[in-house]
Simulated assay, not measured.
Amino acid sequence: MKQSLFENRHQQEWEQLSRLLDQLERSRNVPQSNEFPHAYRRLCQHLALAQARGYSSLLVDTLQQLALRGHQQLYRDRGRPSGLTAFILVGFPRLVREQWRFVLAACVMFLGSLAGIGLLVYLFPELVYSVMGAEEVSQIRSMYDPAAGHLGRSVERAASEDWVMFGYYIMHNIGIAFQTFASGMMFGLGSAFFLFFNGLTIGAVAGHLTQIGSGGTFWSFVIGHGAFELTAITLAGAAGLQLGWALIAPGRLTRGEALRLAARKSVSMIAGVILLLLIAAFIEAYWSSSAVTPATKYTVGALLWLLVLSYLLLAGRVRHAAE
């Protein structure tokens, strides 16, 4: 059977099940209908057929997600977290692991360009002016001058304005993340560009400041919030690349349908990105520029990196075992 005929025949069943799952997920007090187990078994049968017949990955992926949602509701425990809590503890890290190919591609583009240009600028100092203007370089030097006493701030900013900076960091970082994500609509080229661009800019700053002797000031400032901020930019880029790939390789679906399916996961990814950026902004405003010893900041920063990586790699893995 052709995929188009298969979809036309069963699309209504899938939509009905999706609406029922929406109701069950919105409120844990909604009882399961008698038809729900049968509808769930039918979906599992459709999923097995789609996999066996080699239908498009987008269709199989959509049915898998619907089956996962159905499984969670069929065997749900009312003592388990739901809604936002479930998304944070289970849904988001699972989504990141599920989209590991796009996450890996974004890591290579962003962190690879960051590390590469950082090393080059450190070895060839004049190269920084190929990435940044002379005025920008001068401002960066001033902000991270160990003798200036205004760690991570411009000269005009006072420590009492941390709450203002918190709001600024939120708007600035979310703006960068959304730009990186939304530009994925340009067949992924926009997301790739902003991943490379941000990686080159941050790497050039890191390499230059380390080369001139301000590395201690810079690294002790960024290591804390960097765990959340750099991870968030990478994931925003991964979400954008997913949109672009849906347009490039829609399979047997139309580009509009493929984009709609990809957007569901990408938007969920961005919701998690925003959460990471809120945490990063808080740390950057209230901790990164505080008068704490560098050794303490490095220790806390290392623990935060370990926390973020452990969360994304391990959170949500034991739920099926418990069921």
Rank of each mutant, 00 (worst) to 15 (best):
M1N: 07
Q12R: 15
V30A: 06
V30E: 01
Q32Y: 02
S33N: 04
S33E: 06
H38E: 08
A39D: 05
R41W: 12
L43A: 13
L43H: 12
C44H: 13
Q45M: 07
Q45I: 09
H46T: 07
S56K: 04
S57G: 15
L58Y: 07
L59R: 14
R69Y: 00
L74N: 09
L74K: 11
Y75P: 01
R78T: 10
R94Q: 15
V96Y: 02
Q99T: 08
V103K: 08
C107K: 01
V121D: 10
V121H: 12
V128C: 02
A134G: 05
E136T: 13
E136R: 06
Q139H: 10
S142I: 04
S142Q: 15
M143R: 14
D145L: 09
A148D: 06
R153Q: 09
R157H: 11
A159T: 09
A159D: 04
S160C: 02
M165N: 08
M171N: 10
H172Y: 12
N173T: 09
N173E: 07
I174N: 02
I176G: 07
A177V: 07
T180Y: 03
S183T: 15
M186F: 15
F187S: 11
L189F: 13
L189N: 04
L189E: 03
L200V: 12
T201N: 07
G203P: 01
A204K: 00
V205G: 02
T210M: 08
I212S: 09
G213Q: 06
S214P: 00
T217M: 09
G224W: 00
G226I: 02
T231Q: 04
I233T: 03
T234H: 01
A236C: 06
G237I: 00
A238Q: 11
Q242D: 02
Q242G: 10
R252N: 15
R255L: 01
R260T: 11
L261W: 08
A262F: 06
R264M: 09
K265V: 00
G272I: 05
G272D: 08
L277H: 05
L278M: 14
A280E: 07
Y286I: 03
W287T: 02
Y298P: 02
V300G: 03
W305F: 14
L309W: 12
L312C: 12
R319K: 11
E323C: 07
E323M: 14
